[in-house]
Structure formats: C-alpha cells, structure tokens
Design a binder for these strands. Structure first.
Lengths: 337, 337
DNA sequence: AGCTCTCATTGGAGCGCTCTATTGTGCCCG
DNA sequence: CGGGCACAATAGAGCGCTCCAATGAGAGCT
C-alpha cells in the first residue's frame, strides 16, 4: 500500500480510501491511485483489513452435508441476499457426517465472521450455546433455543404426508426416520400425531438421512409378517433408496406400497423417480436466514425463530393401498409408463 | 492475548507459543496459560495471526457448481489429505453458474490463501494466468497451461463410451455435450475420434451440464427423421434427464435407445436409474489435488498436469440397438413399468 | 481584503498476533 | 568452583491495513 501511495504520489490513507470506494476522493486522485495499483499489481490484504476494521462483512456458513443437494438452493438464495447487503460468504463443511462441525465453527470464530449460519447443525445444545455467546448464530433446520432459527414446519410436513396417505385409504403406515438429522424428530412427531389423530396404525424405523438407511429400513420391514401399505421417508434420498429396495424385492410402487419423501429435491422431480414429497421453500429459507443474520449484526439481541410452511407435491409414488378395479390404474400418470 | 498473559502471570509471547502448541514451553506454564485462556474465554484472532505469519496454512477451494453432486466426493478426499498436511480448507462457490467465479477467486487472493483449488473452472485462460501469477493454482478438471491441473482422462472416457456402444452393435450415436463445462470438450473429442475410428455415424448436440440440456437435446433429436440408437451424455445429470424425456416420448431405454452417462455419481448407481456411465476416480482426484497444492506451497515452481484414468461402469441403460426377440425385454426392470 | 466554512488529504496510532534476538535460570563438566 | 550450555521465557519490532484528529486549500461571504 505504501508502494502504491508512493507511485501515485499520495498518502497511504488516500489509497486506503480509494480501495474502499470512498466517495470523498477527487476523481483525479482516484484515477491516479487506481492506475498505480494496477501497475504494481496491488491487491489489498484481507487479513490486515479485518484486523483494523471492526466488522468483517463476512458470514460464515457451515454446511452439514455437502452430499445432500438440498443445501444448494438454500445457499443460492442466501448468497444473493447476503451480497445485496454487502456481505461476503465463506463456506465450510462439517466433514465426515458432522464429525468436524465444531472445528468448522471454531475456525470461523477465529476468523471473526460477523455471523455464523449453520446449515443443518448436529451440535449439542450446550456447545451451540457456548458458540452463540461469541457470535450471532443462525441455525437452519434446527430446533434450539438461544440462537436464531430458520426452519421449515417439519411437524406440519409429517402431518401433510400422513393426511395425504390417509385420504388415499392407507391404514398402516411406516416412517423411516432421520435420527439426529435436522428436523427429523419433528417430522416423526408430526407423523405420529397425525397417525394417532386419524386412528391409523404406525411404525417408526430408526435411521438417518442416508441412502443406506432407506435400503436397510426396507429389509427390516420385509422381515415382518405384515408390510405397511405406505411409507413416509425422512427425506427424498431415503425414499428413493427405499423404492429401489422395494422394487428389488419385486414390489411395485405405488401399487403395493406408496412412498412419500421429504424435501422435494430435484431428485424427486426427475421423471424416473417422480416422487411424492413434502416441499420445503428452500429459497425462502435462505433469504430469511440471511436477513436474520443481518438483523443480528445490526444490533437485534433477542433470538428469533422463523418457521416457514411446507406443502405437499403429489407425484406418482403414492396411490391407494389396493386397486379396486384391476383394470383401472389409479396412478396419476400411470398410463404413460 | 495481553489479558491472558496477565491472568497467567506470563508474557504475551509465551501465550502465543502455547496457542501454537510449541513444545518449548514448560508444562507448568502451559497449564497456567491454558487455564487462564479458558477462564477468560480467549480465542486467537485468525486475521491477526495471518497478518503476522508468513503462511496462512489455508487452501481456498472454489466450487464451480454446488448443485453438482460430483464435487462432494472430491472434496471429502481433498479435505482429508489437506488436514493431514496441516492445512485448513476454506470453500467458496462460483455462484450462478460460474458468473461469480472471478469474485470468489479474488476474495481468496485477498485472504492470501497459500494455494487455490478450482473445482471445475470456467475462467478464461488469460484471467487464470493472471491469478496464477499471484498464487499457486490447481485446477481440477481443466485443461489449461501455466497452472497445475488434475484431471480425468476425459478423452479416454469418451472413447470408452463409444467403444462400449460399438461393441453392442450401435452404428449411429449422438453426444449431448457439456459446452463450457470442465472436460466437456475432451469428452466430445474422444467421442468423435472413436466414432471416426470405428466408422460409425455421429452427431453432437450442444448443451451444458444441466438437466434442462438433457431434455432439450432429446426434443431436438426427436425432431429429426432418424433417431440415433445410442446417446452418450456429457454427465449423469444430463443422461438421466435425457432418459426421462425419452420415456416421456414413449421410447424404452435401452430397447429403443441406449444411454451412457459420465461421472458415475450416486445418482447413476441408484437402482431406479441404474445408468451405464464413465467413472472418474473422484477420491483420487481430490487426494492428488491436495498433494499437488502442497508441493507448490513447498516450493515446486513448474506446473504439473496429473491425468487419472477413467473406467466404464456398465449398468442397465445400455444394450444392443434392437431387440432380436420382441417379447424379451432387455432392461432389467423394464417389465415393472 | 479578511474571515469562516467545507471538504479533500494526511500523519500517526493501533488492531492482535508472530518472530527474532536477547535475557535469565539451572545444570553439567572440566 | 567457574565457564559454558541448553533451554525456558521475554521484550520489542513489525505484519498491512483502518480510523481519528488534524492540516491545507479553495470557495463564499461580508
């Protein structure tokens, strides 16, 4: 910076002003500085800037699972919103199924990001609270107190799935749950409550948000005497893996078993999959999370929870438990196949 | 840090040594410092550290497209290898289909990362060269000179696909290409060379690496009088979208048209998809890229290109061009739909 | 002309850390 | 018993930037 100042024949402070795009610099000097910087190949040092500034104008985002495509849409919207507010995004992942989430968070704390956004956190409430004491934290998809939360109404999502299946006439429904995954417990609760409310039999098979879980759950179910006529999976990935295994066992979806997923990822929308699923407004979630972080940085002190509403996307993996008239397929787009 | 030093009754320099895990500190003092730091909730400031240190011990990774699941495996291996060498990873994405890639790169340059890894770059060679002058750059999947490159032998990949299809008896093959995408041109070249070498007809339909491309390419092909009997898609996503559209048009895969993808993502491995595809050794790519960056940081000056070898994974979307006995479906699960 | 006012420009302190050289302390060995 | 030695600990000078208060130069007004 000193070199640039010398080259342009101005002071170091003036160069600083130009680099930050300050309006209180005369055009003449600005051009001289810009030219000198270009000539010398000067690029400001972010570390030094951050050290001298109070704010870093950076949001740290920790992604729970890079393999889960669900996050990309949220991130897109998050990025657009953050950029509009003059924030930069820095990403990190909770590598190895969340094992390194604390490390990722601590790294960002050391970087003094203005706020932290956790995209699907698996941290213990205690650990989270400790981190939140150091830096504003927005958890996406969590259900914790003491930090900002943006989440889908997953309980309602579970209910939507059950209501749909009950309407179709199902009376015995299984749920493959998401274990520790974000929102999994709420989906399960919605499932169980709705099943109870409608007086249908239910069973919950433990799992996580992985493909393996979907397959294993089906194997588990196949060992029983009576198979449920419908399955509500913790997410689309699990649902697809479940369908996969069901078909491998010679069962037809939805004729023998209906399957409903969760997340409405593009995977569900593929015609080869064409999965009935609960849709989360992902872009809205990203946008709200960015605004939320923004407000925290701007001074709001009390944590807030934003709940966005899911809806059901009915596709071809759900149908009535049995076909009343064998010749008539109830499947919406069954005729096309 | 001064506070911690005072609290522990030592000098600031000693606290610094403890925070960096130096072995030349007596256990007694170390414990005193650690205790004091914990009591005060002290956390070192990364910006200050980076400013004072020469190296940042950080690799910047720019991901071309977060929606493409291909990257996650590469990143996992990259992370493991980088961490083993004492490096931290910082991620950023080239949001909006690569439009912000330069921004992402410049951000990392300002952060003074030790090296930059571009996961699928679409930068112009000139821009890339300019960046490479400032910081070691490893491009994954590119084909540029002047920087380190780790890439799959995509030309060979294209050849593998064609050889497989020719062996099955196809004589008119289409390629849906990946446009500007990483490796797309090499796949096309391999495709064209192999088609020429085997004397089969070929056609290339322009596109990119997106789902939309797959669908549009099929619509384009359907307008022609003669449909190719096999299609080699630029990647799995395109292939799946293509299959989708083919089936929507009443065509059967592979009975009427064979489809081969590229990348062997988990999407291809799903049984509902079960796609024949060219496999890239993703984890190896990640590992090599990390080592490559490491070597550059350690002083190697001349750029190197590492080429890893692909192989073909044959699944159920490829078969002979016509079914000899009309009653026999060649597709494993064809009878279910 | 003389004075104030405004605004572009500047000097210098300081952000929180690391690093080099230096001081201090106890120990071994001739 | 004293000189050297190894090693723990420290002081102080930056790293490259921003920010604040202060300076200088015109412009406007009486």
């Amino acid at each position: 910076m000193d070199d640039v100042a010398a080259e342009a024949g101005v002071s170091r402070a003036l160069v600083s002003l130009v680099m930050r795009g300050s309006p209180k610099v005369s055009d003449q000097r600005r051009e001289a500085v810009v030219a000198a910087a270009a000539r010398l190949g000067y690029r400001p040092n972010a570390a030094a800037r951050r050290l001298a500034e109070r704010r870093s104008n950076t949001l740290g985002v920790v992604i729970d699972d890079l393999h889960n495509t669900y996050h990309a849409d949220v991130l897109d919207a998050l990025h657009v919103e953050a950029e509009a507010n003059g924030f930069r995004l820095l990403l990190n992942a909770a590598w190895l199924r969340g094992r390194n989430e604390s490390q990722a968070v601590e790294m960002f704390l050391e970087y003094r990001v203005d706020a932290l956004i956790l995209l699907g956190s698996r941290l213990e409430p205690d650990a989270l609270a400790a981190f939140a004491a150091e830096c504003p934290i927005v958890v996406i998809g969590g259900e914790v107190s003491g930090v900002d939360v943006v989440r889908n109404d997953d309980k309602r999502g579970g209910e939507l799935a059950v209501e749909h299946l009950v309407e179709l006439g199902h009376t015995y429904i299984a749920h493959i749950d998401g274990g520790e995954g974000a929102g999994a417990d709420r989906r399960r609760r919605g499932f169980l409550d709705a099943c109870a409310a409608h007086g249908v039999r239910s069973v919950v098979i433990p799992g996580d948000f992985s493909e393996e879980t979907g397959a294993e759950a089906i194997e588990h179910l196949l060992r029983d005497d009576e198979l449920p006529t419908a399955i509500f999976a913790a997410n689309d990935l699990v649902a697809v893996a479940a369908i996969d295994r069901l078909e491998a066992a010679g069962l037809k979806v939805p004729d023998d078993v209906s399957v409903v997923g969760y997340d409405n990822t593009w995977l569900a929308a593929l015609r080869t999959v064409d999965l009935t699923t609960v849709n989360q407004p992902r872009r809205e979630i990203g946008r709200v999370a960015a605004r939320c972080a923004q407000q925290r940085v701007d001074g709001r002190s009390s944590p807030v929870t934003h709940v966005v509403t899911p809806d059901l996307v009915v596709r071809s993996t759900s149908g009535p438990p049995s076909v009343p008239l064998p010749e008539v397929s109830r499947r919406v787009r069954g005729g096309q196949r």
